[in-house]
């Protein structure tokens, strides 16, 4: 196997990891700050993608589409927080799971009601489409490099937000002791709405960015949601840094496992059987990774709480 192919696959792993980070960051913030398991996070991803597809279809502008995705997902997130989620903070996790699962169904069928049952069209803008040649003769799609860049910028922005701003201090304080910061006069319910909308906006952005190279359809968020949960468990719940490292690890494991496990089995099995066994094991690879991390560190890589 050539070095070029390996480098290309590492880039692919990075790119999928970074998009996963956008999902996982919101999820881990919401879980960390509010103690809420939000299964409907994947629906916000879908809302972002559909909003982007609708706006791109109407205006032809990809940038406007991204703005619309951010706005629509943040708005949907804020509304959901104020109408439904707010009642669930004191409820047991099982009630939260039940309610947010209901939200998935409502979002999915609502989207179908508005947009119909067939997938929507959303494409990479012409100025970002096609491959470019990297040093060493690697051909790589420009859009995927842009995704890596956007994801890294968001990661830096989030770090700055949580580490260097007043609202970041409040968010971190809310994670540690919510009664205390309420007692210090911080409007906790407003803070929660902001955090939820922020998480939703990140999911919506991921949905729109990824929607351009994938299928914009009802239910597109659920497979990503499962991986995002794996990421925050690996990274440690509530930790943005953990979500970042976890997402990159999961992205790389998923991508490289899918390539190298079948190759590995070909060394001692015939091709057809090796492909099947290798692929089956590759789809388990991220869960194996999660188990290994949990054996080593039961609270995840950067998890503070048990």
């Amino acid at each position: 196997m050539s070095t070029i192919l390996i480098i290309e696959q590492i880039l692919n792993g990075l790119q999928s990891g970074i998009m996963l980070f956008l999902m996982a960051a919101g999820l881990t913030l919401i879980f960390g700050v509010m103690g809420l398991i939000n299964l409907a996070h994947g629906s916000l991803y879908m809302v972002g993608a559909f909003a982007a597809a609708a706006v791109a279809g109407a205006t032809g502008s990809f940038l406007l589409a991204l703005v619309a995705a951010l706005a629509a997902a943040a708005l949907a997130g804020a509304i959901v927080e104020m109408v439904v989620i707010r009642r669930l903070y004191k409820a047991p996790h099982l009630d939260q799971v039940l309610a947010t699962f209901a939200l998935i169904l409502i979002f999915s069928e609502g989207t179908r009601w508005i947009f119909g049952s067939f997938p929507l069209f959303l494409d990479v803008p012409s100025y970002l489409s096609g491959p470019i040649r990297l040093p060493g003769g690697i051909q790589y799609p420009l859009y995927r490099l842009v995704l890596i860049g956007v994801g890294l910028s968001v990661a830096i922005g989030l770090w700055w937000l949580t580490a260097r701003t007043r609202i970041g201090i409040q968010i971190r304080a809310g994670e540690n002791d919510r009664e205390m910061i309420a007692a210090l006069g911080v409007d906790i319910s407003k803070l929660y709405t902001i955090v939820f909308a922020l998480g939703a906006a990140l999911a919506g952005l991921a949905g729109a960015l990824v929607g351009a190279i994938q299928s914009v359809q009802v239910g597109m968020g659920e497979p990503v949601l499962i991986l995002a949960f794996v990421v925050i468990v690996i990274g440690g719940i509530g930790s943005i840094k953990g979500a970042f490292i976890g997402a990159i690890l999961v992205g790389l494991t998923d991508t490289l496992g899918g390539i190298f496990l079948p190759q590995l089995f070909k060394l001692f099995m015939e091709t057809g059987a090796a492909t099947q066994t290798g692929s089956a094991l590759a789809s388990m690879a991220v869960y194996v990774l999660m188990s290994l991390v949990l054996i080593w560190r039961p609270t995840g890589l950067f998890g503070a709480r048990a």
């Binding site: 196997m1 050539s2 070029i4 192919l5 290309e8 696959q9 692919n12 792993g13 790119q15 999928s16 051909q139 799609p141 995927r144 990824v210 190279i213 994938q214 299928s215 597109m220 497979p223 990503v224 991508t255 899918g258 390539i259 079948p262 091709t271 057809g272 492909t275 099947q276 692929s279 590759a282 789809s283």
Partner: peptide, 20 residues
């Protein structure tokens, strides 16, 4: 010859293999 995951949405890895 490749088997992908059911419901898989990203094919970058497969396309790289096709190219090679």
């Amino acid at each position: 010859e490749l088997y992908t995951e059911l419901g898989q949405t990203d094919y970058a890895a497969e396309i790289a293999q096709i190219r090679a």
